[in-house]
Amino acid sequence: LPHTAVCLVCGEAGKEDTVEEEEGKFNLMLMECSICNEIIHPGCLKIKESEGVVNDELPNCWECPKC
Protein backbone atom coordinates (compact mmCIF):
# COMPACT_ATOMS: atom_id res chain seq x y z
CA LEU A 1 0.00 0.00 0.00
CA PRO A 2 1.22 3.57 -0.62
CA HIS A 3 2.51 5.56 2.33
CA THR A 4 -0.40 7.96 1.92
CA ALA A 5 -3.02 5.22 2.51
CA VAL A 6 -5.26 5.75 5.54
CA CYS A 7 -8.12 3.83 7.14
CA LEU A 8 -11.56 4.57 5.70
CA VAL A 9 -13.09 4.56 9.22
CA CYS A 10 -10.60 6.31 11.53
CA GLY A 11 -8.47 8.18 8.96
CA GLU A 12 -5.17 6.99 10.44
CA ALA A 13 -2.28 5.10 8.84
CA GLY A 14 -1.10 1.62 9.81
CA LYS A 15 -0.30 1.36 13.53
CA GLU A 16 0.95 -2.26 13.73
CA ASP A 17 4.40 -1.19 14.98
CA THR A 18 2.87 -0.05 18.28
CA VAL A 19 2.04 -3.58 19.55
CA GLU A 20 3.90 -6.87 20.08
CA GLU A 21 1.29 -9.66 19.76
CA GLU A 22 0.32 -10.93 16.29
CA GLU A 23 -3.46 -10.55 16.72
CA GLY A 24 -2.99 -6.97 17.81
CA LYS A 25 -0.72 -6.27 14.84
CA PHE A 26 -3.32 -7.65 12.42
CA ASN A 27 -6.10 -5.46 13.87
CA LEU A 28 -3.92 -2.34 13.48
CA MET A 29 -2.39 -2.91 10.03
CA LEU A 30 -4.06 -1.46 6.96
CA MET A 31 -5.69 -4.06 4.72
CA GLU A 32 -7.08 -3.49 1.22
CA CYS A 33 -10.08 -5.56 0.14
CA SER A 34 -9.53 -7.29 -3.21
CA ILE A 35 -13.26 -6.95 -4.01
CA CYS A 36 -14.43 -3.49 -2.85
CA ASN A 37 -10.91 -1.93 -2.64
CA GLU A 38 -11.67 -0.30 0.72
CA ILE A 39 -8.58 0.25 2.88
CA ILE A 40 -9.27 -0.26 6.56
CA HIS A 41 -7.83 -1.47 9.86
CA PRO A 42 -9.54 -4.83 10.57
CA GLY A 43 -10.02 -3.65 14.16
CA CYS A 44 -12.04 -0.64 12.95
CA LEU A 45 -14.69 -2.89 11.41
CA LYS A 46 -17.58 -3.40 13.79
CA ILE A 47 -18.40 -6.82 12.28
CA LYS A 48 -17.66 -9.55 14.83
CA GLU A 49 -19.42 -12.64 13.46
CA SER A 50 -17.05 -13.29 10.57
CA GLU A 51 -13.45 -12.63 9.75
CA GLY A 52 -12.02 -11.57 6.43
CA VAL A 53 -10.18 -14.01 4.18
CA VAL A 54 -6.51 -12.99 4.12
CA ASN A 55 -4.60 -13.43 0.87
CA ASP A 56 -1.23 -14.91 1.90
CA GLU A 57 0.29 -14.23 -1.52
CA LEU A 58 -0.24 -10.45 -1.48
CA PRO A 59 0.73 -8.34 1.55
CA ASN A 60 -2.05 -6.28 3.12
CA CYS A 61 -4.68 -7.87 0.85
CA TRP A 62 -7.85 -9.65 1.94
CA GLU A 63 -11.55 -10.13 1.23
CA CYS A 64 -13.16 -8.03 3.95
CA PRO A 65 -16.02 -9.48 6.04
CA LYS A 66 -18.50 -7.14 4.30
CA CYS A 67 -17.74 -8.71 0.91
Rank of each mutant, 00 (worst) to 15 (best):
F26H: 05
N55D: 11
S50D: 13
E57T: 11
F26G: 06
E20M: 14
N37I: 01
K46C: 13
M31R: 08
L30F: 01
C33E: 02
C10T: 06
C10P: 03
E49T: 12
L28P: 08
C67E: 02
C67K: 02
P65F: 04
E63D: 15
W62F: 11
P65W: 04
W62R: 02
L58W: 08
L58T: 14
E32P: 03
N60L: 05
C10L: 00
M31Q: 02
L45K: 04
G24V: 11
I39C: 07
V54W: 09
A13I: 14
D56Q: 10
I40F: 02
L30Q: 05
L8E: 02
E38Y: 02
T18Q: 10
N37V: 00
T4A: 00
D17N: 11
D56I: 01
L28Q: 12
P42W: 05
L45Q: 13
E32K: 14
E57D: 13
I47V: 12
L1A: 07
E22T: 14
D17E: 10
V54S: 05
S34F: 10
L58S: 13
V54I: 14
G43P: 03
A13C: 05
E49I: 06
P65M: 02
C64A: 00
T18H: 04
L28S: 13
I35T: 14
N60W: 07
E49Q: 10
E23A: 11
E22F: 00
E23D: 11
V19H: 06
E49F: 10
N55A: 09
E63V: 12
M31T: 04
F26Y: 06
E57K: 14
E16L: 06
I47E: 12
V6A: 02
C61N: 02
C33N: 03
T18W: 05
P59W: 05
K48S: 08
E49P: 12
H41P: 06
V53L: 09
E20Q: 09
G52K: 08
S34H: 11
P59V: 12
T18G: 04
T4S: 05
K25H: 05
N60K: 07
G14D: 11
E20P: 09
D56L: 09
N37S: 13
G52V: 12
I39R: 14
D56A: 11
N55M: 07
L30G: 07
I47P: 11
W62V: 03
C64H: 15
V19E: 03
L1P: 15
L1Y: 15
P59K: 13
E49A: 13
